[in-house]
Amino acid sequence: MITFQGVSVVHPNGVTALRDLDLKIEKGDFLFIVGPTGSGKSTILKLIYREEVCTAGRIIVAGKEITGMARRQIPYLRRGVGVVFQDFKLLPQRTAWDNVAFALHVIGVGKAEVKRQVAKVLDNVGLLHKADALPTELSAGEQQRICIARAVVNNPVILVADEPTGNLDPDTSWDIVQLLSRINVKGTTVVMATHDRHIVDRMRKRVVALQDGRLVRDEDKGAYVCEL
């Protein structure tokens, strides 16, 4: 589903974010990316939805090489990749419903279809009863659920989550990861960058560890720190 071949990223200020990364993520994988701040976790995620571009190497997403992708092609790549943020990035003046519907409106989905899809996805994240609430009227966990709903309402093949539990208490974090896990079970490939040792250890999924932009560990059913 996602392939990185010898990918390096050097920022214009000279900082190297990734060094010669090789990584293959299969369809239906649930993958944790762990590592200290600045190790390149977010960079990997941003490369997948082409928020950043690599300075060397090749990246293939959903069968398409995106390395030299034309600017006008990027929106179509992003329709296949849902993104979940640590700070949710919800529009404060729009209701939960409108925040989710917005993602469909702007890619040109018709009204009836928007209504059907939004109701379904809000039900899936357990917040249909809060559809009319503004983000400020929701708890942090609920806001993250809305953010996830917005990311998956378009049925993307890949879901990318950048420290989605970074602002949440342990119980809520666990609920959110369970929600991501349910989305993964339905066939969506999930890539999640995290600092949350508790969650990684409890989930026992594939773990990719980074240090200074280098891949230092790639383990199936791994833990937050190396157990060998």
């Binding site: 928020e51 529009l91 702007v106």
Partner: peptide
């Protein structure tokens, strides 16, 4: 912020 989200969910320029 809206434009940012529009871009992320795949709205064309």
């Amino acid at each position: 912020k809206e434009i940012r989200i529009m871009q992320l969910v795949g709205a064309t320029d």
